[in-house]
């Protein structure tokens, strides 16, 4: 869900997400799953939903 959220809102850099996960998740096997989940969420929005960013009056995209 985090990957989808970041891909949809573009509010934060995915690289930052990875660095946070690397700091917070101590078990390497779980970190690998988290990386895949992050990518899966991004792919879902990017390749399946194809809904793009949302523009709003306050500048949120």
């Amino acid at each position: 869900m985090m990957g989808a959220l970041l891909e949809e809102t573009e509010c934060l850099a995915p690289g930052t997400a990875l660095s946070v996960l690397e700091d917070k998740v101590k078990k390497l096997n779980l970190l690998e799953i988290d990386r895949k989940a992050l990518t899966a969420g991004r792919l879902f929005i990017d390749e399946q939903a194809h809904i793009g960013a949302v523009s709003q009056p306050d500048g949120f995209a």
């Binding site: 869900m1 850099a13 690289g15 997400a17 799953i33 990518t39 899966a40 879902f44």
Partner: peptide
């Protein structure tokens, strides 16, 4: 409101290959 339904429990994350971050 745009609503995106994501079947997270069915996501085949094991088949996903990590990709490099865009930034």
């Amino acid at each position: 409101v745009q609503v995106v339904a994501m079947p997270l429990r069915r996501s085949p994350i094991n088949s996903v290959q990590p990709r490099p971050p865009t930034s």
